[in-house]
Nucleic acid binder design. Structure first.
Lengths: 136, 136
DNA sequence: GGTATATTTGCAACTTTGTTGCAAATGTAA
DNA sequence: TTACATTTGCAACAAAGTTGCAAATATACC
């Protein structure tokens, strides 16, 4: 709980109930949540717009990050180790079975050689498969 | 043009003007297009629903594939080498400058070790940076 | 604690996208 | 050319993205 207050303070975000609630929800979530899942899991119901805007401001401060799935679905999760030096390699895992999305911590991974003229800056890898809960 | 007819035939899709148009549009596109970009570039205007459904059927036949960007934007592009053996590694490049999305052909790339219990099936890598047209 | 100021919320409104049902139009095969 | 299977356009509605504005709330200062 203090972590959440600290996180808000670090990012110059005032401590409002909606913000605290959303961070609590995302913190306790096992996997990344969609906007509507977040809304459904809030203890108190906030306006759609408020949740939308709160997510925007968390995103812009890098308090949370979004993961875009096939077909355009978007999920949100706490940004792990926000304070650590910027990491340009991100790995997420999508479970074909339970539809869960997990942030995978990892060392920078090998990246493919790109055609002449392409200058890479960062890498988002989405791995599809079966997650730890679904591989019996 | 004959390629397009052949592609439709191979996939048991009847040769309708809308389908031919959409494939022509995607074929001549340098980068992946959004649904509305496709609609705008068609020589004749088809109903939104028709374009939507046409894209669905192309997707399900793997004639085209979709790329999901940050924030949930979706782009579509021809599936290169649809007939080649299934490739579980996909690489796309998003240009931060011109917003173009490019399919990158490549050899299978090294993938990071996943935590215990996660069973990978395929890998989608989205590289952000500057594309060949924008690196002066 | 009380107040002034800067933020955040809720609500209305509107755009775009995703999606379905249905009847009319079109493609395909015989 | 007919007969049947598909595809299209249109109406309709849900969900998501987005903005403006006034009311409610948080934060800083006395």
């Amino acid at each position: 709980m203090n972590d959440i207050y600290a996180l808000l303070e670090e990012n110059n975000l005032s401590r409002t109930p909606c913000r605290v609630e959303i961070l609590k929800t995302l913190s306790r979530a096992d996997s990344a949540l969609s906007e509507s899942e977040i809304r459904d899991q809030l203890a108190y119901s906030y306006d759609r717009t408020t949740v939308y805007r709160t997510l925007r401001s968390f995103l812009s401060q890098n308090v949370i990050h979004s993961i875009s799935l096939e077909g355009g679905e978007v999920r949100y999760a706490m940004t792990p180790g926000k304070d650590k030096p910027h990491n340009s390699h991100h790995v997420h895992f999508y479970c074909n079975n339970c539809n869960g999305v997990f942030c995978i911590s990892h060392k920078p991974f090998e990246t493919p050689v790109l055609p002449k003229g392409f200058q890479p800056e960062n890498f988002d890898l989405l791995v599809h498969g079966k997650c730890k809960n679904c591989t019996t």
